[in-house]
Protein backbone atom coordinates (compact mmCIF):
# COMPACT_ATOMS: atom_id res chain seq x y z
CA UNK A 1 0.00 0.00 0.00
CA UNK A 2 1.21 3.49 -0.74
CA UNK A 3 -0.47 6.76 0.08
CA UNK A 4 -1.54 8.69 -2.97
CA UNK A 5 0.37 11.69 -1.61
CA UNK A 6 3.52 9.63 -1.21
CA UNK A 7 3.19 8.17 -4.71
CA UNK A 8 2.90 11.68 -6.09
CA UNK A 9 5.83 12.95 -4.02
CA UNK A 10 8.12 10.10 -5.07
CA UNK A 11 7.13 10.51 -8.70
CA UNK A 12 8.34 14.10 -8.39
CA UNK A 13 11.48 13.01 -6.57
CA UNK A 14 12.32 10.97 -9.67
CA UNK A 15 11.50 13.83 -11.99
CA UNK A 16 13.45 16.44 -10.02
CA UNK A 17 16.46 14.18 -9.66
CA UNK A 18 16.52 13.67 -13.40
CA UNK A 19 16.00 17.38 -13.94
CA UNK A 20 18.94 18.17 -11.66
CA UNK A 21 21.20 15.93 -13.69
CA UNK A 22 19.98 17.33 -16.99
CA UNK A 23 20.47 20.92 -15.87
CA UNK A 24 23.93 20.14 -14.56
CA UNK A 25 24.86 18.56 -17.90
CA UNK A 26 23.59 21.63 -19.71
CA UNK A 27 25.60 23.90 -17.42
CA UNK A 28 28.67 21.80 -17.92
CA UNK A 29 28.23 21.92 -21.67
CA UNK A 30 27.62 25.64 -21.60
CA UNK A 31 30.66 26.29 -19.45
CA UNK A 32 32.83 24.48 -21.97
CA UNK A 33 31.23 25.63 -25.20
CA UNK A 34 30.31 29.26 -24.71
CA UNK A 35 33.81 30.42 -23.89
CA UNK A 36 34.79 29.68 -27.48
CA UNK A 37 31.89 31.62 -28.97
CA UNK A 38 31.48 35.24 -30.06
CA UNK A 39 28.90 37.36 -28.24
CA UNK A 40 26.08 36.85 -30.76
CA UNK A 41 26.89 33.16 -31.14
CA UNK A 42 26.85 32.75 -27.38
CA UNK A 43 23.44 34.37 -27.22
CA UNK A 44 21.98 31.88 -29.70
CA UNK A 45 23.55 29.00 -27.82
CA UNK A 46 22.08 30.23 -24.54
CA UNK A 47 18.66 30.48 -26.10
CA UNK A 48 18.98 26.95 -27.42
CA UNK A 49 19.94 25.61 -24.01
CA UNK A 50 17.03 27.32 -22.34
CA UNK A 51 14.72 25.91 -25.01
CA UNK A 52 16.14 22.42 -24.60
CA UNK A 53 15.35 22.56 -20.91
CA UNK A 54 11.83 23.76 -21.64
CA UNK A 55 12.40 26.97 -19.70
CA UNK A 56 11.59 29.57 -22.40
CA UNK A 57 8.60 30.99 -20.58
CA UNK A 58 10.39 31.17 -17.23
CA UNK A 59 13.43 32.75 -18.85
CA UNK A 60 11.20 35.36 -20.50
CA UNK A 61 10.05 36.41 -17.06
CA UNK A 62 13.55 37.11 -15.77
CA UNK A 63 14.44 39.16 -18.85
CA UNK A 64 17.45 38.78 -21.07
CA UNK A 65 19.99 36.08 -20.39
CA UNK A 66 22.84 37.61 -22.28
CA UNK A 67 25.92 36.67 -20.43
CA UNK A 68 27.37 33.51 -19.06
CA UNK A 69 27.11 34.76 -15.52
CA UNK A 70 23.38 35.38 -15.89
CA UNK A 71 22.79 32.02 -17.48
CA UNK A 72 24.70 30.24 -14.75
CA UNK A 73 22.81 32.06 -12.02
CA UNK A 74 19.51 31.34 -13.75
CA UNK A 75 20.19 27.63 -14.12
CA UNK A 76 22.05 27.17 -10.88
CA UNK A 77 20.48 29.09 -8.03
CA UNK A 78 17.51 31.15 -9.23
CA UNK A 79 14.71 30.23 -6.84
CA UNK A 80 12.21 31.79 -9.25
CA UNK A 81 13.19 29.18 -11.82
CA UNK A 82 11.59 25.83 -10.98
CA UNK A 83 14.15 24.19 -13.25
CA UNK A 84 17.22 25.59 -11.49
CA UNK A 85 19.48 23.18 -9.68
CA UNK A 86 18.64 24.84 -6.35
CA UNK A 87 14.89 24.55 -6.96
CA UNK A 88 15.18 20.93 -8.05
CA UNK A 89 17.48 19.96 -5.18
CA UNK A 90 15.19 21.69 -2.66
CA UNK A 91 12.17 19.96 -4.15
CA UNK A 92 13.85 16.56 -3.92
CA UNK A 93 14.70 17.22 -0.29
CA UNK A 94 11.23 18.44 0.60
CA UNK A 95 9.46 15.56 -1.14
CA UNK A 96 11.77 13.03 0.48
CA UNK A 97 11.25 14.69 3.83
CA UNK A 98 7.51 14.26 3.48
CA UNK A 99 7.96 10.57 2.64
CA UNK A 100 10.78 10.05 5.05
CA UNK A 101 9.45 7.10 6.96
CA UNK A 102 9.10 4.92 3.88
CA UNK A 103 12.42 5.56 2.13
CA UNK A 104 15.87 4.33 3.17
CA UNK A 105 17.46 6.67 5.71
CA UNK A 106 20.54 6.88 3.49
CA UNK A 107 18.45 8.25 0.65
CA UNK A 108 17.24 11.07 2.84
CA UNK A 109 20.73 11.65 4.19
CA UNK A 110 22.25 11.92 0.72
CA UNK A 111 19.54 14.25 -0.54
CA UNK A 112 19.70 16.36 2.60
CA UNK A 113 23.50 16.48 2.35
CA UNK A 114 23.31 17.56 -1.29
CA UNK A 115 20.87 20.32 -0.39
CA UNK A 116 22.98 21.56 2.53
CA UNK A 117 26.21 21.56 0.54
CA UNK A 118 24.56 23.23 -2.41
CA UNK A 119 23.15 25.91 -0.14
CA UNK A 120 26.64 26.58 1.19
CA UNK A 121 27.84 27.16 -2.35
CA UNK A 122 24.95 29.25 -3.53
CA UNK A 123 24.84 31.33 -0.35
CA UNK A 124 28.45 32.20 -1.01
CA UNK A 125 27.49 33.20 -4.60
CA UNK A 126 29.98 30.97 -6.43
CA UNK A 127 32.31 32.79 -8.76
CA UNK A 128 32.47 31.26 -12.24
CA UNK A 129 35.79 29.65 -11.45
CA UNK A 130 34.09 27.53 -8.79
CA UNK A 131 31.33 26.44 -11.17
CA UNK A 132 33.07 23.20 -12.10
CA UNK A 133 33.49 22.43 -8.43
CA UNK A 134 29.76 22.84 -7.78
CA UNK A 135 28.80 20.81 -10.81
CA UNK A 136 31.13 18.02 -9.83
CA UNK A 137 29.71 18.02 -6.31
CA UNK A 138 26.12 17.84 -7.56
CA UNK A 139 26.94 15.17 -10.12
CA UNK A 140 28.63 13.02 -7.49
CA UNK A 141 25.76 13.48 -5.06
CA UNK A 142 23.30 12.45 -7.77
CA UNK A 143 25.36 9.34 -8.41
CA UNK A 144 25.33 8.56 -4.70
CA UNK A 145 21.57 9.00 -4.60
CA UNK A 146 21.18 6.73 -7.61
CA UNK A 147 23.40 4.23 -5.86
CA UNK A 148 21.22 4.18 -2.77
CA UNK A 149 18.13 3.96 -4.94
CA UNK A 150 19.43 1.03 -6.92
CA UNK A 151 21.15 -0.88 -4.16
CA UNK A 152 19.50 0.22 -0.94
CA UNK A 153 15.81 0.56 -1.68
CA UNK A 154 13.20 -2.10 -1.39
CA UNK A 155 11.52 -2.79 -4.74
CA UNK A 156 8.17 -1.55 -3.54
CA UNK A 157 5.69 0.89 -5.02
CA UNK A 158 7.73 3.82 -3.74
CA UNK A 159 10.73 2.67 -5.74
CA UNK A 160 8.56 2.12 -8.78
CA UNK A 161 7.23 5.66 -8.65
CA UNK A 162 10.71 7.19 -8.40
CA UNK A 163 11.83 5.21 -11.44
CA UNK A 164 8.70 6.11 -13.39
CA UNK A 165 9.27 9.78 -12.59
CA UNK A 166 12.86 9.58 -13.77
CA UNK A 167 11.99 7.78 -16.98
CA UNK A 168 9.20 10.18 -17.85
CA UNK A 169 11.36 13.22 -17.18
CA UNK A 170 14.24 11.72 -19.11
CA UNK A 171 12.04 10.89 -22.11
CA UNK A 172 10.62 14.38 -22.19
CA UNK A 173 14.09 15.90 -21.98
CA UNK A 174 15.52 13.70 -24.72
CA UNK A 175 12.69 14.35 -27.13
CA UNK A 176 12.71 18.05 -26.24
CA UNK A 177 16.42 18.14 -27.00
CA UNK A 178 15.88 16.58 -30.42
CA UNK A 179 13.02 18.96 -31.22
CA UNK A 180 15.23 21.88 -30.26
CA UNK A 181 18.01 20.44 -32.42
CA UNK A 182 15.74 20.17 -35.46
CA UNK A 183 14.54 23.74 -35.04
CA UNK A 184 17.98 25.23 -34.36
CA UNK A 185 18.00 28.72 -35.92
CA UNK A 186 21.60 28.16 -37.00
CA UNK A 187 20.21 25.74 -39.54
CA UNK A 188 22.41 22.76 -38.72
CA UNK A 189 21.61 19.80 -36.50
CA UNK A 190 24.58 19.49 -34.17
CA UNK A 191 24.80 15.76 -33.46
CA UNK A 192 27.75 15.99 -31.10
CA UNK A 193 25.98 18.57 -29.00
CA UNK A 194 22.90 16.35 -28.68
CA UNK A 195 24.92 13.37 -27.61
CA UNK A 196 26.96 15.43 -25.16
CA UNK A 197 23.85 16.85 -23.53
CA UNK A 198 22.60 13.33 -22.93
CA UNK A 199 26.00 11.93 -21.87
CA UNK A 200 25.75 9.53 -24.80
CA UNK A 201 28.66 10.60 -26.95
CA UNK A 202 31.07 7.98 -25.68
CA UNK A 203 28.50 5.22 -25.98
CA UNK A 204 27.75 6.29 -29.55
CA UNK A 205 31.42 6.20 -30.48
CA UNK A 206 31.87 2.72 -29.09
CA UNK A 207 28.78 1.47 -30.86
CA UNK A 208 29.29 3.12 -34.25
CA UNK A 209 33.00 3.81 -34.35
CA UNK A 210 32.67 7.05 -36.33
CA UNK A 211 31.84 10.67 -35.75
CA UNK A 212 28.10 11.13 -35.22
CA UNK A 213 25.87 12.27 -38.03
CA UNK A 214 22.55 13.96 -37.13
CA UNK A 215 20.30 11.18 -38.32
CA UNK A 216 22.38 8.52 -36.63
CA UNK A 217 22.45 10.47 -33.38
CA UNK A 218 18.69 10.94 -33.34
CA UNK A 219 18.04 7.30 -34.17
CA UNK A 220 20.45 6.31 -31.44
CA UNK A 221 18.78 8.53 -28.84
CA UNK A 222 15.33 7.30 -29.75
CA UNK A 223 15.68 3.64 -30.56
CA UNK A 224 18.92 2.24 -29.14
CA UNK A 225 18.32 -0.76 -26.94
CA UNK A 226 21.83 -0.74 -25.51
CA UNK A 227 21.56 2.87 -24.30
CA UNK A 228 19.76 3.31 -20.96
CA UNK A 229 19.03 6.90 -21.88
CA UNK A 230 17.26 6.15 -25.15
CA UNK A 231 13.56 6.80 -25.38
CA UNK A 232 12.93 3.13 -26.12
CA UNK A 233 14.79 2.03 -22.96
CA UNK A 234 13.07 4.66 -20.82
CA UNK A 235 9.58 3.69 -21.93
CA UNK A 236 10.33 0.03 -21.43
CA UNK A 237 11.49 0.64 -17.88
CA UNK A 238 8.56 2.90 -17.06
CA UNK A 239 6.19 0.27 -18.42
CA UNK A 240 7.82 -2.47 -16.33
CA UNK A 241 7.47 -0.44 -13.13
CA UNK A 242 3.87 0.39 -14.01
CA UNK A 243 3.28 -3.35 -14.41
CA UNK A 244 4.74 -3.88 -10.91
CA UNK A 245 2.29 -1.35 -9.51
CA UNK A 246 -0.56 -3.00 -11.37
CA UNK A 247 0.43 -6.36 -9.91
CA UNK A 248 0.80 -5.28 -6.28
CA UNK A 249 -1.75 -2.51 -6.05
CA UNK A 250 -4.04 -3.05 -9.00
CA UNK A 251 -3.71 0.57 -9.99
CA UNK A 252 -2.54 2.84 -12.84
CA UNK A 253 -3.78 0.55 -15.61
CA UNK A 254 -4.59 3.50 -17.87
CA UNK A 255 -1.09 4.91 -17.56
CA UNK A 256 0.46 1.54 -18.24
CA UNK A 257 -1.63 1.14 -21.39
CA UNK A 258 -0.65 4.60 -22.62
CA UNK A 259 3.06 3.96 -22.08
CA UNK A 260 2.77 0.52 -23.63
CA UNK A 261 1.08 1.91 -26.71
CA UNK A 262 3.77 4.54 -27.16
CA UNK A 263 6.49 1.94 -26.76
CA UNK A 264 4.82 -0.33 -29.30
CA UNK A 265 4.55 2.49 -31.85
CA UNK A 266 8.23 3.11 -31.36
CA UNK A 267 9.12 -0.56 -31.80
CA UNK A 268 6.89 -1.08 -34.82
CA UNK A 269 8.58 1.77 -36.66
CA UNK A 270 5.47 3.89 -36.79
CA UNK A 271 7.25 6.89 -35.35
CA UNK A 272 10.29 6.42 -37.56
CA UNK A 273 8.00 6.44 -40.57
CA UNK A 274 6.30 9.64 -39.47
CA UNK A 275 9.68 11.24 -38.90
CA UNK A 276 10.86 10.31 -42.37
CA UNK A 277 7.98 12.31 -43.81
CA UNK A 278 7.94 15.35 -41.53
CA UNK A 279 10.36 15.14 -38.61
CA UNK A 280 9.40 18.23 -36.66
CA UNK A 281 5.62 17.59 -36.45
CA UNK A 282 6.27 13.92 -35.66
CA UNK A 283 8.68 14.77 -32.89
CA UNK A 284 6.39 17.48 -31.50
CA UNK A 285 3.53 14.99 -31.43
CA UNK A 286 5.76 12.54 -29.58
CA UNK A 287 6.73 15.25 -27.10
CA UNK A 288 3.06 15.94 -26.56
CA UNK A 289 2.23 12.25 -26.09
CA UNK A 290 4.84 12.01 -23.35
CA UNK A 291 3.37 15.01 -21.54
CA UNK A 292 0.00 13.24 -21.82
CA UNK A 293 1.41 10.17 -20.13
CA UNK A 294 2.72 12.31 -17.28
CA UNK A 295 -0.67 13.89 -16.72
CA UNK A 296 -2.48 10.54 -17.00
CA UNK A 297 -0.30 9.20 -14.16
CA UNK A 298 -1.14 12.25 -12.05
CA UNK A 299 -4.84 11.69 -12.72
CA UNK A 300 -4.65 8.02 -11.75
CA UNK A 301 -2.63 8.64 -8.59
CA UNK A 302 -5.17 11.23 -7.33
CA UNK A 303 -2.96 12.91 -4.73
CA UNK A 304 -4.79 15.03 -2.18
CA UNK A 305 -4.64 18.72 -2.91
CA UNK A 306 -1.90 20.78 -1.34
CA UNK A 307 -4.20 23.56 -0.28
CA UNK A 308 -7.77 22.36 -0.65
CA UNK A 309 -10.46 24.99 -0.57
CA UNK A 310 -12.54 24.33 2.51
CA UNK A 311 -15.72 26.25 3.14
CA UNK A 312 -18.02 26.08 6.10
CA UNK A 313 -21.80 26.09 6.00
CA UNK A 314 -24.31 26.64 8.76
CA UNK A 315 -27.90 27.37 9.58
CA UNK A 316 -28.98 29.88 12.18
CA UNK A 317 -32.32 30.28 13.83
CA UNK A 318 -34.60 33.05 12.68
CA UNK A 319 -32.91 33.06 9.31
CA UNK A 320 -31.98 30.48 6.74
CA UNK A 321 -28.22 30.36 7.20
CA UNK A 322 -25.08 30.99 5.28
CA UNK A 323 -21.63 30.07 4.21
CA UNK A 324 -18.36 30.68 5.93
CA UNK A 325 -15.06 31.59 4.34
CA UNK A 326 -12.37 29.17 3.41
Amino acid sequence: MILARHADALLWVGRYLERTEATVRCLDYAANSIIHLRGDEARVEIEQLVKTLGLESVAALVGSLEGRRQLFAFLLSDTGNPGSVLSAVSAVREKLRSTRERIPIELWEEANGLYLRFREFSDAAPPPERLQEVLLMVRRACLAISGVLNEGMRRDEGYAFIVIGRMIERSIFTVGLIVAGYTDPRGTIDATRMLRLTSSLQAYHRRHGHAPDPEGAVRYLLFATDLPRSLQSCLLRAEDRLKDIGATAGALDGSRRKVGLLRARLELGEIEEAMAQAPVPALSALHWDLAEVASEIAVEVVPPLDFPTVRSQYLRPGEAGGLGGT
Binding site: P308, T309, V310, R311, S312, Q313, Y314, L315, R316, P317, A320, G321, G322, L323, T326
Partner: peptide, 22 residues
Protein backbone atom coordinates in the same frame (compact mmCIF):
# COMPACT_ATOMS: atom_id res chain seq x y z
CA UNK B 1 -24.78 29.92 23.33
CA UNK B 2 -25.55 29.34 19.65
CA UNK B 3 -22.09 27.86 19.05
CA UNK B 4 -22.99 24.82 21.17
CA UNK B 5 -26.31 24.04 19.43
CA UNK B 6 -26.31 25.25 15.81
CA UNK B 7 -28.98 23.47 13.73
CA UNK B 8 -26.36 22.72 11.06
CA UNK B 9 -22.63 23.20 11.08
CA UNK B 10 -20.32 21.72 8.49
CA UNK B 11 -17.55 22.03 5.96
CA UNK B 12 -17.12 20.95 2.37
CA UNK B 13 -14.30 20.92 -0.17
CA UNK B 14 -14.53 23.11 -3.20
CA UNK B 15 -14.66 26.76 -4.08
CA UNK B 16 -18.37 26.82 -4.84
CA UNK B 17 -20.79 29.43 -3.61
CA UNK B 18 -23.97 28.08 -2.12
CA UNK B 19 -27.59 29.04 -1.79
CA UNK B 20 -29.27 27.96 1.39
CA UNK B 21 -32.96 27.43 1.84
CA UNK B 22 -34.49 26.24 5.05
Amino acid sequence: DYGDVPPVRGVFMGGATAEVEA
